[in-house]
Design a protein around this nucleic acid. Structure first.
Lengths: 208, 208
DNA sequence: ACCGAAATTAACCAAATGGTTAAACTAGAT
DNA sequence: ATCTAGTTTAACCATTTGGTTAATTTCGGT
């Protein structure tokens, strides 16, 4: 009856809760999420949520940090590549592929960012995020003559904008541009990896 | 004592409520907003909200449609200009300037978009929004040889992404890139009107 | 001065919601 | 078998929240 309930090992339940919490928080945001819904999705009693994570806010923070940790390293790793072309290609790929797998993530982060901007800085530190690494990387490449000399911050914002914004506007795009065909959107985003690289090449790489 | 209370004229109170509701909904979103806070900000009794707008949802919808109506026409008007260069410049300006005045608007819209994607299509119709007009415009210009022949949808997404995304990520940018200096961010966005145009020119205009 | 309709308020209500508690259960150690 | 510490649950609680009601006020028209 109570099929695969894993009693003995406490940390299993903890992970079950975190998974359920991630799903619900990602979809509804902090304000829209309900502890009961998380408990239901985890298949446990609501009191367990508080037993493992004291409060809704604590649970949310854990989910938030975990989500962030899941995607930022991929961006950071991309910068370890020497060739600027490959590095930028990796960044574009990291953003688009990570978010293709977790389409709710961008809006989740952006929403939370507006809800509690103060808390955000602290959490960023905890995860060790420093957008300056991208700016610095671009600046270096410019100074070494591998990229056109422009404003590196502007360049970073442009690249991230083109990668991330479509995810933020995804439901709108699917409805109004893709005639409700999700697959069409996925296909579009697949192609964008290359098409964004073309823009980057045309605008930022030195033609020879 | 009760200074400038405007009793008799119903539509005045109605507008007072709508203004307060706009402020609160924009900042907190539908889920985070509280009817009491709206009433307080409007300086009236909570029951008045329901007297004029039946329910929270009805009030929210009104605010949402009104907000949308406020900015979309500016985008649409920009397309009436013949010269593609000036038209695109107007679009970039319309987005950036509108959102500079209402920095919460993008996140408000994007958040709602994820909360109730279904409702969104209906509201879009009510306001008369049709992103296809931009795509069509670009396609025309390409066929007439004024713009490079590329995927017009992709081009539109790129332009809108570069214009709008920084607003969605505004608190993050201010904290991590601007050292909490909001004015610096405003200055950055001022400059972006031109810098985005440069990208557009380089990638999409035909060089002669 | 008075009437009636619209506007406004205080008090109230039911449901939802985050959180708590005390008791019961589980499993490994002795 | 029993003890104990960690786990799980049902029932409960206080507060919040959207919404309602009935009475009162306001004000233009007569």
């Amino acid at each position: 009856m109570d099929d695969l309930k894993n009693k003995q090992s406490g940390n299993v339940s903890e992970q079950v809760i975190l998974n359920a919490a991630r799903d619900v928080f990602m979809e509804k945001g902090m304000d829209g999420a309900r502890m009961q819904e998380i408990a239901d999705k985890a298949g446990i009693n609501k009191a367990m949520l508080h037993y493992y994570f004291r409060s809704k806010e604590k649970l949310f923070d854990k989910v938030f940090v975990e989500a962030f940790k899941e995607f930022w390293p991929q961006v950071q790793d991309a910068l370890k590549i020497e060739s600027p072309h490959e590095a930028l290609e990796s960044i574009v790929q990291a953003y688009i592929e990570t978010f293709m797998e977790k389409p709710y993530l961008p809006n989740f982060i952006l929403g939370e960012l507006h809800r509690t901007p103060e808390k955000f800085g602290l959490l960023m530190n905890e995860v060790g995020i420093q957008p300056k690494v991208i700016v610095d990387f671009l600046q270096q490449q410019m100074e070494m003559g591998y990229l056109k000399k422009t404003n590196p911050m502007e360049m970073m914002i442009n690249i991230i904008s083109m990668c991330v914004f479509p995810f933020a506007a995804r439901p709108l795009m699917i409805q109004l541009l893709m005639k409700n065909d999700e697959e069409k959107w996925n296909h579009f985003m697949e192609g964008r990896k290359e098409s964004i690289m073309n823009i980057i090449k045309e605008c930022y790489f030195i033609k020879q």
